[in-house]
Design a protein around this nucleic acid. Sequence first.
DNA 1: CGGGACTCCTGCCAGC
DNA 2: TGCTGGCAGGAGTCCC
Length: 297
Amino acid sequence: MPELPEVETVVRGLRPALENRVISGLALSPHRLRFPYPENFVERLMGQRVIGVRRRAKYILVSLEGGQTLLWHLGMTGRFTVKPPAGPARNLGEFYDEAATEAASAGAHEHVTLSLDDGSRITYSDARRFGFADLMADAEMETHKLLRDIGPEPLGNEFNAEHLAREFHGKKAPLKAALLDQHVVAGLGNIYVSEILHRSGLRPARAAGTLSARKPNTQKLELIVRNTRAVLEEAIAAGGSTLQDFAHADGSAGAYQQRFAVYDREGSPCQTPSCTGTIKRIVQSGRSSFYCPRCQK
DNA sequence: CGGGACTCCTGCCAGC
DNA sequence: TGCTGGCAGGAGTCCC
């Protein structure tokens, strides 16, 4: 599912396809996505030149020359496919299961088709339609409802032990929920939070506030910060290499197999060196969490 | 106000 | 074999 590393991978794939190109056509399917498209969506995008593509949290932000920014969220099953003027289509994001990727490549659930001035086309497919698009003036970025309250980027300097100490202070919510909260830190999702907590030796059900009492447990907080960065950077590196494979290969999928230490590994032996535990699955606020009861405290 | 439940949607798969 | 129910998950919204 698209969490920060997957969105980053998609952004890196979209960048060369979109930057400097002019939008020459835009077609929408009759189905709306999670939210209705913004007013005059097509008209406002037509003829616009793309000057930049970047990521904030799990949002894709496309800057347009005319002073507008296109915001896109992939939801859970959103994916972009780039079709160059000649040659095979390139599916951005091989982190989805193979069947869904094939379906998208075959044109199923296509909701938006963007034509560019170099003859290429970019399509957005989204089986569950949890994704959505929005369009705003650049000046509205700071105050945009979906962006203004988002926490620091986990790979930036603002995400540190002091920040977590402040955010966790007095929190009764479990660590799992606290790290999933986009206001605490941006971009983490269900899968990576399990991985980060496993690497940090912390139980997902542990109350976040226990790490930030009157005297914050700085060591543990720093461990979370360090492992968050490590897990995300490894995943981005893996995604990036997938993209490269894809760019110079014949379009075959499956070169990249994500290896998780705990996610979806219930009943498997814990991979922590010298740990003899077995991965357990629990449900927290309707979501699965995976952890090792032996080495996570 | 914090925290949890519910909601959107469709594909997949275990179990009957 | 074919159907059904449960599950997957991002994040806004609602309610206690």
